[in-house]
């Protein structure tokens, strides 16, 4: 599958840097970063099958439930150059806590998330009166892993409130086309931020 957010993240990461991928899944992004950018990468996840697959591929992964406050707190400050949280923030119970510890342990943080204020879910909610579902969000409200939906605007406000510096931001539409920041909250299906604190 073509992942515009992966491409963007790979572009942003400096070659040879130290990278932590939180919620690394089966390690697709980590694998690309190691192959294309020669990074020293570590993944964190709590899914046994994904972790075993990563280890079999030769990736370094650490089993930890970051959502329960485990794991990240034990990494010293600025251990990494980049900490990545892609398509995971909206699935966490304590998104802010995790985000702040990532900003502590890494010089820069890359966050990618689906924009809930995008036209399609907006129309879905408006016309159908039901929680939006799509290819990217295929779950019913009661069994979705995504429990903290937010919008581009929400995230920008959060950064402002928390004194987080937004270094770069990129937005993509439903067909992976680039979206201008001015209209991002309406037209972006996916957002990727490079931030630091």
């Amino acid at each position: 599958m073509f992942k515009p957010d992966y491409d963007q993240i790979v572009k942003w990461v400096e070659p040879g840097s130290r990278v932590l991928d939180v919620g690394c899944g089966e390690g697709l992004l980590l694998d690309r970063l190691i192959k294309e950018k020669n990074v020293h990468g570590v993944g964190v996840d709590n899914d046994a099958k994904s972790l075993d697959l990563c280890i079999t591929k030769g990736l370094s992964v650490i089993q930890s439930n970051v959502d329960q406050g485990e794991g990240l707190k034990d990494f010293p400050d600025k251990t990494f150059d980049y900490a990545i949280l892609n398509d995971t923030l909206q699935a966490l119970h304590r998104p802010l806590e995790v985000l702040l510890s990532m900003l502590r342990l890494s010089k820069k943080v890359i966050v990618g998330f689906p924009n809930f204020a995008h036209l399609t879910p907006r129309f879905y909610l408006f016309f159908q009166g039901r929680m939006p579902m799509s290819k990217a969000m295929p779950h019913m409200w009661y069994d979705t892993p995504n429990i903290h939906f937010m919008t581009v605007k929400d995230f920008q406000l959060l950064c402002k409130d928390q004194g987080i510096t937004v270094l770069k931001q990129r937005y993509f539409g439903e067909h992976f086309e680039s979206v201008h920041p001015f209209l991002a909250n309406l037209l972006a299906a996916e957002a990727v931020f490079l931030i630091k604190k």
Binding site: H40, A48, I55, S60, V61, I62, T79
Partner: peptide, 21 residues
């Protein structure tokens, strides 16, 4: 085991950790 992982990570040592169910 986590104590070991923590100490290794403090040294930026390459480590994987699995807590098998």
């Amino acid at each position: 085991s986590w104590e070991i992982v923590k100490a290794l990570k403090t040294n930026s040592i390459n480590v994987s950790y699995r807590n098998i169910g």
